[in-house]
Design a protein around this nucleic acid. Sequence first.
DNA 1: AGGAGTTTGTGAACGCGAGAACAAAACGAG
DNA 2: CTCGTTTTGTTCTCGCGTTCACAAACTCCT
Lengths: 221, 221
Amino acid sequence: MARLPVYLRALTALAERGIRTCSSEDLAAAAGVNSAKLRKDLSYLGSYGTRGVGYDVDYLRYQIAREIGVTHDWPVVIVGIGNLGHALANYSGFRSRGFRVVALLDADLERTGELVAGVPVRPFDDLEAIASEHSVAIGVIATPAAAAQDVADRMVAAGVTSILNFAPAVISVPEGVDVRKVDLSIELQILAYHEQRKAHEHARDEHPDLPEMPAVVGGDQ
Amino acid sequence: MARLPVYLRALTALAERGIRTCSSEDLAAAAGVNSAKLRKDLSYLGSYGTRGVGYDVDYLRYQIAREIGVTHDWPVVIVGIGNLGHALANYSGFRSRGFRVVALLDADLERTGELVAGVPVRPFDDLEAIASEHSVAIGVIATPAAAAQDVADRMVAAGVTSILNFAPAVISVPEGVDVRKVDLSIELQILAYHEQRKAHEHARDEHPDLPEMPAVVGGDQ
DNA sequence: AGGAGTTTGTGAACGCGAGAACAAAACGAG
DNA sequence: CTCGTTTTGTTCTCGCGTTCACAAACTCCT
């Protein structure tokens, strides 16, 4: 489930506040979900709670980490050391949450040798060597859209089976390879969409005599 | 719908390749979705296609942009000019897709005046003045988790009604305010989860004599 | 020891989105 | 003008995920 990492983070936050035990209500509130959904998600992993008491924070934390697979570090390569690549390489959350950046790659040979967050930038052609040396299964694409498909193909050929794609492009990969896409401007556009609908609602509130005319959408064609 | 921005980007890509008209199959392939779903989404906006022909790329592009609300630029403020804030401020996709960064804010007064992507960094306390001057409705939080809730509160008080939150924290906002959350390490953890499941599948393939024992999950408690 | 109070785990109903399938409409050829 | 072809817009069904509601189980107090 895609919510397990959210629960894990919420549990970590509780643990840091010194809380040893919590109910499903507490954890659900911290994670921002419904408590019934949370209980059902956790019951899918096994019976780790105690009725009448709740969940042991540290124990549940370990069990979720084990389920996700972040009890040991995953080696990760980042390709494309532009602004975003820099930010990702410096992001401390990776290190502390089960990931280790083993290499930064960039097609621009001018950048080779540059040190980012203590890791040297290497030529993109080193991908295969690095991937096999460190058994890299997870790759991050932070290149421009035009290069994304090529990078993905090379990654897959080098044995990468999970890709996190920040490039604004749809990439296609063979069966068995997972891709997750994060597109910053799409997130903003979704917000803009809601913003605009709020504005329309507001306009109608102020002029309730105007009809809603849903059937006339597109009447200007 | 959250898929409209994806369609818009796919249409832009088609237009840049000189394609004037496309069928729902073509566009669906470019956007990476099912064609029936795409047609249903578009029909929700109105009847912008021609049976037997398809959709006019530019016309549909404009209609989707109008629906999303990105026919004019939205002013945006970014709070927290660390690594990620830098990357966001420099991200050209915002500018070209309907957003204009009107201010960069940071609580650290050492950064005040620093120029990032041609925009000066200003003190966080200028938020209210900037928000009212530019009628800012959309804010981006790129601060550490600890500061996220405070920043969100101040944003809401300053009239911001849509927030894009990159901080690894759940923030609570009043009714009517939209929040979207992007968490980089959670995306990676989801990949790690799939990775681990692949590894287990693989291990079972190589040792088919091992039982699956789903009932023993948690047997080590 | 027993009962009251909590809290988990789960069975059942509900709602919603996805996909397949089809009818309506437009275009072109003869 | 008519028929065949193409493609949209829509209806219908199916399955999944979410939520409610409750029984089982555990603790604490008397």
